[in-house]
Computed example of a mutant assay.
Amino acid sequence: MHHREIHLPHVLETSFIVRERDPRGAPVDLDAAPQVVRVELQRGERTVGVTVAPAELEPSLAALPGAERTCVLRDLDVPPAAAELAPLLYVALQRARVWRRSVVVSHDPRLAAAPLQLSALGRGELRAAPLDAAMHRLYAACDDDGRALLTSRYVAEATASLARHAEAFAGNAWCRAVHADRLAREQYVAALANTHQYVRYTPRLLARAISVCDDESLRDHFTRHFRGEQKHDRLIEADLRYLDADVEFVVNAMVPWGPTLAFMAVQESMVAFHEDLTCFIAAPFVAEGLAAHVGPTVLAPLAGNIRRWGYREPARATRFLVSHTREDGGDDGHWNATLAVLARLLRDDTTQQRFLAALHLAADAFTASYDAYADYLTLFTPPPLADP
C-alpha cells in the first residue's frame, strides 16, 4: 500500500528534549507501527527514560487476554520523586494511544504508586490501569513545563493517529479494486452517490458552526471553509451524469448507506447537539487528510478503470475527487489550515482524548464506507482476466 506521507507538525520548543528510539538506537516516528520504543526526556543536566512496547511483542505478556489492546512500560530510569516522571510516562503513553491501546501494564512496583496508580491483576507482580484514566492522572501530576511539553505534542499525536488510519484506508476493498483494475462502474457510482449525501450538507453544518461559535478566530476559520465548500455537490452530480447514473435518485430519494450515515452522524452530533466545535473538526480533519494523502495515488489507476467501462474521458467522471485532492493538499489547503486551528484548540488532556475519540469514530466510519462501496456490490466486480 502506497500513499503520500503525512508529515507530522513541528513540535514546539519547550524546556524538554524528547528522544524516541528503537532497540538499535534509530529514531522512531510517532506514526510508526507498534514496536518497542525507548523514550528519553532530558531537562537541563538530567535525562530520564522508560521503554514502551506492545504487549504482544513481550514474551511474558503475549498470551495475556487482550494483549493486542495493551501496552507495557518497563526499564524505568527515573530518580525517586523526580518531577520528570509524569511527563516522561505521558509521552511514552502517547505512542500507545496512537497504537489505539486501551490498557497499560507493568511489572515495575514503582509504577503502582501515584501518579500512574496501577492496580494488581492477580497475575504475579503485573499491575494495570485503563489507559485513559492513567494518562489523565499523569497530565494532572505534571508541572507547568511538563504540561507545556505535552500540549505541544497534541497536534502531532492527532496527525500520527490519522496516518495510522491512512494505512488502513489505502488498503480498503474499494482502493484495492481500483489498483487491481477490477473496480466496477457501479462501485464507483456508489462512492460518488454516498459522498453526495454528506457533501451537500457541509455548507449548512459549517453555517451552524459559525452561528454557535463565540471564538472570533475559529469563526473566521469556519467562514473561510464555508466559502470554499459551495456547490461541491454539483461537481458530483456532473460526474454521475457523465457515467449515466440516476442523478435524480441520488439527489432526491437516496438514503445514505449505513457506514456513510455513521460518518455523517459524527460531525452532525458534534455541531448540532454537543456544540463541540473542536470535535466537529475531527470529521473534516479525517476526510480532508485522507483525500490529500491517499487520493493522489488513486486518481491515475481510477482513470484506467473508467476507460475500461467504455468512457473515453475519465476527467469528466473525476471532477469532484480531483478538486478535493488538489484543494485539501498543499500548504494552502484545508488540511494545513485545520492543523493550525487544532494547535490552538487542543490544550489539555481531556480535550485531546475527546478529539481523538471523534477522530477514530470518523476515520473508522470513513474507511468502512469505502469497504462497503466495493463489498456491497461484489456482484458487479468483473471476473479475473475479463476482457476490457
Rank of each mutant, 00 (worst) to 15 (best):
A372H: 15
A386E: 12
Q352T: 00
R19D: 14
P296Q: 12
E288F: 10
W335L: 01
W174C: 06
N336V: 00
T260I: 03
V341H: 03
S102F: 06
P382H: 08
D31N: 06
Y242C: 10
I17M: 10
L64V: 14
A184F: 10
R147K: 11
P284F: 00
E40G: 00
Q117K: 11
L192Y: 06
H293P: 05
Y139E: 03
V50D: 08
S106R: 13
R316A: 14
L205I: 11
L339Q: 12
D331H: 08
S369N: 05
T159H: 08
A315C: 09
A163S: 13
A160Y: 12
M1G: 13
R204Q: 12
H179T: 06
C175R: 05
T260A: 05
L240E: 13
Y201V: 00
E229L: 11
Q353H: 03
D233R: 04
D375H: 15
A238P: 07
V199N: 01
A26S: 13
F280V: 02
R326D: 15
T151I: 10
T367S: 04
R19T: 15
H107Y: 15
H274V: 01
R344T: 09
L299H: 11
P109Y: 09
V18T: 11
R164G: 11
F320T: 03
L162V: 07
L361V: 02
F380N: 06
T70N: 08
E216S: 06
C175N: 09
P109A: 09
A83L: 03
A170T: 05
E268H: 06
P388Q: 12
P23E: 08
R38W: 00
R354N: 02
R326N: 15
G289E: 07
V37R: 06
E125G: 05
A262F: 00
V98A: 03
A291N: 12
S161V: 02
D75S: 07
A374L: 14
A386D: 10
Y139P: 01
E216L: 09
A374P: 08
Q187E: 06
D181W: 10
S60D: 13
L299V: 11
R127I: 07
W257E: 14
P203N: 08
E5F: 08
P314Y: 13
E275M: 05
L206S: 13
L321H: 02
H274K: 10
P9L: 08
T14Q: 04
A133V: 13
A386T: 12
Q94S: 09
S323P: 01
W174M: 09
R147N: 04
D181T: 11
L346P: 04
V72H: 06
A63I: 11
R24T: 14
V294E: 02
V105N: 09
A292D: 02
T351M: 00
T47Q: 12
R326L: 15
D364M: 05
A340H: 12
G44V: 10
A96N: 08
T318D: 04
D143A: 12
L8D: 01
P109V: 10
V50K: 03
P9I: 03
H179G: 09
L149K: 01
R95Q: 13
G333C: 04
R153F: 01
G330W: 13
P384G: 07
N172G: 01
A207K: 14
G171W: 03
R137K: 07
G330P: 14
A362H: 04
Q352G: 00
S119L: 15
Q94D: 07
L93F: 06
A92Y: 07
F285M: 02
R208M: 14
D31A: 04
V271D: 06
C175A: 09
V98M: 10
D132V: 10
S119H: 14
P384N: 09
